[in-house]
Simulated scan of single mutants.
Amino acid sequence: MSTLLGDTAGPDLDLLKAVNGLADSAPSWVDSTVAWLGEYGLLLGLGLLLAVGWLQARRRPDAPVAVAGLLWAPLAVALCELANLPISAIVDRPRPFVDHPELQVLVQGKEGTLSFVSDHSAMAMGLAIGLYLVNRRLGLIAGVLAVLQGVARMYVGVHYPTDVLGGFALAAAVVLLLAPIAMAVLVPFTHALGRTALRPLVIAAPRRTGRRRIERDLAA
């Protein structure tokens, strides 16, 4: 089946070759590090940021709403992955190294899989946008990691730039467009969860440093 995007031979391919070509002069340890980061490391970093955001959200005055927003981020990523199944099948775009064997492929196991859109890029940007909606500072850091994720996928030779941009666009559409519906369901859920024995997952216990200081002053 012919692909909708075709065999890219313009700026898309030129940018891919420019990024992938950096591996020619890079030490082998750099290539292996970028390959690991592009497959696992950056997503793990985003997961860590999400955990930090959750710890901070539990101490906010609007904790149930903030926690609901953070819960939406991974759920949105799951929806992105489901949405990508028919998209990738319809576009039917092979990996860039299939039509361009001169590219350096630094990760294994991608043969026979499709290129558009980039799952890794969609997951990374979905987590970044979801986190930004709750915590802008952490969200901006996550956004940088998401961009690096896309660059890493080109560096290792498994995605065109438009695959990466497509992943970013898919993530943004799912996270932002479905957020009102998701929050309408998740906010009541987190409020209800806060009234159960699982309350610490939603609302952190109040700090007692002020009380201890008063008790210490009275004792003195």
Rank of each mutant, 00 (worst) to 15 (best):
N84H: 06
V19I: 15
L55K: 13
I90T: 11
A63S: 14
G53A: 05
E39R: 05
K17I: 05
L71Y: 04
A76R: 04
G69I: 04
P61W: 12
R60Q: 13
K17F: 03
V19S: 08
L43G: 00
A57F: 09
L37E: 04
E39Q: 06
P61R: 13
G53L: 06
D31S: 14
S28W: 12
W36N: 01
V30W: 15
D14R: 03
A35V: 02
G38S: 01
A66V: 07
L13T: 01
N20E: 12
C80I: 06
E81W: 12
G45Y: 00
P74L: 11
C80Q: 08
A89Q: 13
L46I: 01
V67S: 07
V77L: 10
Q56K: 15
D31Q: 10
D92I: 03
A83G: 06
L22Q: 13
P96T: 10
C80S: 09
L70V: 10
L75S: 05
D24G: 13
L71H: 06
L22P: 11
G41M: 00
P11S: 09
F97C: 08
E81C: 10
V65I: 11
W54P: 04
V34P: 02
V67G: 09
E81I: 14
W36L: 07
D92Q: 12
I87P: 04
A35E: 02
R58P: 07
A76C: 05
G38M: 03
D12F: 01
R93N: 07
L42E: 00
L49R: 02
V34K: 02
V77H: 08
L15E: 01
G53K: 06
P86M: 05
G10S: 10
D12H: 01
D7F: 00
P27K: 08
T8Y: 08
L79H: 03
R58C: 07
Q56A: 14
S25A: 15
A9I: 08
S25W: 14
Y40S: 03
A23M: 11
Q56R: 15
L79K: 03
D7T: 11
A76Q: 06
L22M: 15
G69P: 04
A18Y: 10
V77C: 12
L37G: 01
R60N: 04
P94Q: 13
A35K: 02
L50W: 14
L13S: 02
R58I: 12
V65A: 15
A68T: 08
S32V: 11
V34C: 02
L50D: 01
L15W: 05
V30H: 03
S32E: 14
V67K: 11
L43H: 00
D14G: 08
L42Y: 00
L85R: 14
A57I: 11
G69R: 13
L44V: 07
A76T: 04
V34Y: 03
L70S: 11
A76S: 15
K17G: 07
A18G: 06
D7G: 04
G45K: 00
L70K: 10
A35R: 02
A57S: 11
S25G: 15
L82E: 09
V67L: 12
P96K: 10
